[in-house]
Nucleic acid binder design. Sequence first.
RNA 1: UGGGCCGUCGCCAAGUUGGUAAGGCUCGGGGUUUUGAUCCCCGCAUGCGCAGGUUCGAGUCCUGCCGGCCCAGCCA
Length: 560
Amino acid sequence: MTDTAATGNNFIRDKIQRQIDAGELRGSEVQLRFPPEPNGYLHIGHAKSICLNFGLAEHFGGKCNLRFDDTNPAKEDLEYVDSIQDDIHWLGFDWSGEIHYASGYFDTLYDYALHMIDNGDAYVDSLSPDEAREYRGTLTEPGKNSPYRDRSPTENRQLFEAMRSGELEEGSCALRAKIDMASPNMNMRDPIMYRIRKVPHHQTGDKWCIYPSYDFTHGQSDALEGVTHSLCTLEFEDHRPLYEWFLTKLPVPAQPQQTEFGRLNINYTVTSKRKLRLLVDQGHVAGWDDPRLSTITGMRRRGYTPAALGNFCEAIGVGRSDGVVDMSMLEHAVRGDLDKNAPRAMCVLDPLKVIITNYPADQSEEFIAAGHPNRDDLPSRTLPFSRELYIEQDDFREEANKKFKRMVIGKKVRLRNGYVLLAESCVKDTVGNIVEVHCSYDADTLGNDPADGVKPKGVIHWVDAKAGKRATVRLYDRLFNDPTPDRGEGEYLDKLNPESLRVVENCWIEPSLADAAPEDRFQFERTGYFVADKLDHSADKPVFNRTIGLRDSWASQGSA
RNA sequence: UGGGCCGUCGCCAAGUUGGUAAGGCUCGGGGUUUUGAUCCCCGCAUGCGCAGGUUCGAGUCCUGCCGGCCCAGCCA
């Protein structure tokens, strides 16, 4: 069982199922939506939301649409509108119907605002932002009514229209809902419905200079789209009374219900758009798609797969507590999918030359190696072999105890997919570094154990020195040394892991790898999972990113 | 010291009307293996934040504490 896709916990799925069982709605009527604000790149937390929303729609045979929650043009950009679509598609989902934009409802929302003004449920407040803050009160003290709170519907209408026409300055006034300045729920203390922002919008251009707030937009947008279940994270729980209040005050076509779930946090990484942006802007990483980032595009470049992310989201479940998931869970999901699907290949990262003294210099041959140990549907590959090859420095020792199952002088070791070798001697440079190992090979050991019945304990990977190709390999490690860089503000930049990226030039890869296309994934046997870089890889200059190492019980036991 | 929410094994997380603690991750032990990988077995909470109470019986009900998260943007 490499994944638990069928058993993940999800209280929302259960809740909808109960509603269906109770005959309150049909599965085909389930309507969800994924509502990102296009102000940054999507990250692993969004992946959870995407898998939840689109996954629920698939599960019940309902629908899920994409809606950009674009009510704050000052922070948004078309670049993000595009990247978000790419990320959703890459994850394997597609939205039903056309893409929706909250900005597409601006006309309707404006009419809704007028409706509320006419009913005495909204007023134009001329308090400055600073004054408004003072009037709002504090967490323990009630706020007080604005002196402009009792303006007549007629006056409010004129003022609101003036706001819209551009006659009024930013900050000079705002449209607010008339609810209760003494409410213990801060969100109900006459929340802002519209504010003046004289900036162009990426979708509506300069048509508007007033923009609706999240609270006045989200629920109505949901209703307009016929959304039955509006899912959001826990911090919006306090907004639910307001979400429902607007819905009861307006002639909306549906009554969506908001349900909150716990945000996803993973240790050793950050999932806050603000913090991610800072890492990018200050150059701590190479961009939004840096493989060390938990952005979807970054994980993609790192070599993670959509299936791995989906399995991970299913495995962590959906609940209402705000915990921190172990990075090991994500890694488990990634290894699980890659182990099942990634073709095998060999790559030597830290080369040590081996010369097979009893193998003729002018001779060579080709081995056929399986593409995958337990999948014959993956094509096999050809491994050229000759007198000289490279193995990993770490795989050789002049002498070692029995626990070391690799190449040791006087001992036998098996070349993966090849012969059994007997190490005889090694050559050192003037400072004592081992630069070459001399061995003899046993010609009868291709596919069988040595005739003497002594089976080598170890198997090592290798690359033929003549036929092998050079490659650059980028070894990634966690971006932060601290398990919770996301906690609190500031100082998370001090917790950056200075060794999060190690670039290794001049690695040796088996020739079959020269055919790799960007984004092709492999398991370099005994080393880890790697992906040909999406942007920098080419047959002439191969570049592989390490997605994740293999589990290594030997290393974790403290080697020898 | 206002309001809302949360607290079950190191980490996620089940536990519908009280009936005697799922599963996954991690970790430890063993088996298979031309990847010290995968895979396969086995082990890992007499206890469910704490303290009382109700009950034949409570993680599930009651009371009181303790701890954590969110809210005072004309951000979402």
